[in-house]
Write a protein that binds this DNA or RNA. Structure first.
Length: 282
DNA sequence: ACAGGCTCCTGCAGGC
DNA sequence: TGCCTGCAGGAGCCTG
């Protein structure tokens, strides 16, 4: 479901509410979990740790955790000893609630915090993933791919050099760049005036630079509006985003292009529905 | 290298 | 009302 702007919005919201709080009790649902390592291992690893910060890497939310068993109410050392990595898949939600808030259907994890609040992971389709990492036993989560918000023009161009796949497929490939999904691939290609089926390696340097800037602008604009709420996306408070009203092509099949009035086309690229304006994009 | 298909799931909209 | 089909912000795997 969520792409970079939605994940960024959620991570910021969660961070501002739980930073400095401590995990005092952990509950995982009993049936098949969307987990990378076992529920019991995660629960044992998470409990009694201070949440140092929460941030986004690609489409992943990274919860940075202090060492286990520090004194209650202590400020902590600020050092990162473990991480909880949350990937929301298509329908995942990470919510900060009061303990008495009704438990939504498909709630898979609940972390009770010292403040009394709860951090909950809800995911109907269970495409999301939860992973616990003890940094004493393994490496820090790096995530795949480069960050589209900060990538330099040279690096951006290098990603696509010599590649025969469609530019849209390349944008969706998380090992190249992390965070771009179906909405923002379509929207950035529209903004850059590039057709989604163009071969990545055939784009001119000028087009690539236009695409890099368009992508950055679209993502930053979407972050400012709290992301796109296409069906069920909500932030850490359960509030919706507003970028869906700014979409130029995504899910606007047959509607008039806001730029030229031509009907927006829908095709399939890389197995995903793809929307573009045949008049504005070349 | 890359395309395309299939898979993991649930929920919702639309057609009949 | 119900039943069926298709589709959905992701991504991994397998085949050709």
């Amino acid at each position: 479901m969520p792409e970079l702007p939605e994940v960024e919005t959620i991570a910021r919201g969660v961070n501002s509410r739980v930073r400095g709080d401590r995990i005092v009790e952990v509950w995982f649902g009993s049936h098949r979990e969307p987990l990378k390592n076992s529920a019991s291992r995660q629960a044992r690893g998470l409990v009694e740790r201070r949440i140092e910060s929460v941030h986004r890497t690609g489409k992943h939310i990274v919860v940075e955790l202090g060492s286990q068993g520090e004194l209650r109410n202590s400020a902590g050392t600020g050092e990162i000893a473990a991480q909880w990595i949350v990937h929301l898949g298509m329908t995942g939600r990470l919510l900060v609630t009061t303990p008495d808030a009704p438990v939504a259907k498909h709630t898979h994890a609940r972390l009770r915090l010292e403040s009394g609040r709860e951090l909950r992971f809800v995911d109907p389709r269970r495409f999301g993933r939860l992973e616990f990492r003890d940094l004493a036993k393994g490496t820090k989560f790096g995530g795949p791919g480069l960050e589209p918000l900060t990538i330099a023009g040279e690096d951006f161009a290098a990603l696509f050099r010599g590649r025969k796949l469609a530019i849209k497929a390349a944008l969706l490939n998380q090992t190249l760049m992390a965070g771009v999904g179906n909405i923002y691939a379509d929207e950035s290609l529209f903004r850059a005036g590039i057709r989604p089926r163009r071969r990545a390696g055939r784009l001119t340097r000028e087009e690539l630079e236009r695409l890099r800037k368009s992508l950055k602008e679209v993502l930053e604009h979407a972050i400012r509006l709290g992301g796109s709420s296409v069906s069920d996306y909500v932030d850490a408070d359960g509030a919706k985003g507003f970028f869906q009203f700014e979409h130029n092509v995504y899910q606007r099949t047959g509607e008039a292009c806001r730029n030229c009035g031509t009907a927006i086309k829908k095709i399939v690229v890389a197995g995903r529905s793809t929307h573009y304006c045949a008049n504005c994009q070349h």
